[in-house]
């Protein structure tokens, strides 16, 4: 019997410079680079994840960040099975935007799965405030959250694999 294979489009959402591109780079190529380059348009990267359910071929859509794209978001969100919604632990204002991104993403893909990533934990020692806000988010959206670092690689794999699993379980084709 052939192993089932799934194709899943995943969007990375979040304010600019929170580390979306870096998280993909860490997950797909296991690399980290210091320089910040805003993504122009969309870059699609692929990564295979093996789960008990089968092989999941993740298509990671890296979008240009920032609010200017709000009027075009539909173009990027369509057809996605899940989203990794990213905040930067050192910039509290990026937390507030998580709800905005989650809302507009689910408006277009109501069945999609969400995972929150609180990124750059290598830069901060005290998580108390961030933990509270992340727990609120998880409760509100029924979605897990992870404290990640694209720099150290901490929790990056777990966050993406969890998202892959959720897209299979919630959205089986």
């Amino acid at each position: 019997m052939a192993i089932p294979t799934f194709q899943r489009k995943i969007c990375l959402l979040g304010d600019f410079a929170v580390g979306k591109t870096s998280l993909i780079r860490r997950f797909v190529y296991n690399r980290f680079e210091e320089e910040y380059l805003a993504t122009i348009g969309v870059l699609v990267s692929r990564k295979e994840v093996i789960l008990p359910h089968g092989i999941v071929n993740l298509l990671l859509w890296d979008l240009a960040g920032g609010e200017t794209f709000v009027h075009m978001e539909e173009a990027y969100y369509r057809g996605a099975a899940g989203a990794l919604v990213v905040a930067d632990i050192t910039r509290p204002d990026t937390f507030g935007l998580l709800n905005v991104y989650a809302t507009s993403f689910l408006a277009i893909n109501p069945q999609a799965a969400l995972v929150f990533a609180i990124n750059k934990v290598d830069l901060k020692e005290d998580f108390t405030e961030a933990s509270k806000r992340a727990q609120d988010l998880s409760a509100r959206w029924g979605a897990p959250h992870f404290f990640t670092s694209a720099l150290s690689g901490e929790q990056v794999q777990t966050a993406f694999v969890t998202l892959a699993r959720l897209t299979i379980e919630s959205h089986s084709t």
Partner: peptide, 30 residues
Amino acid sequence: PNLLGLEDELRRIARGQAQPWRIPGFRLSE
């Protein structure tokens, strides 16, 4: 290959069940 995972959506457009779709800044392949 960048269109992988979008088959359902594209079929719906072909059948007229979904709106036309414009993707700005798309790469044809990796």
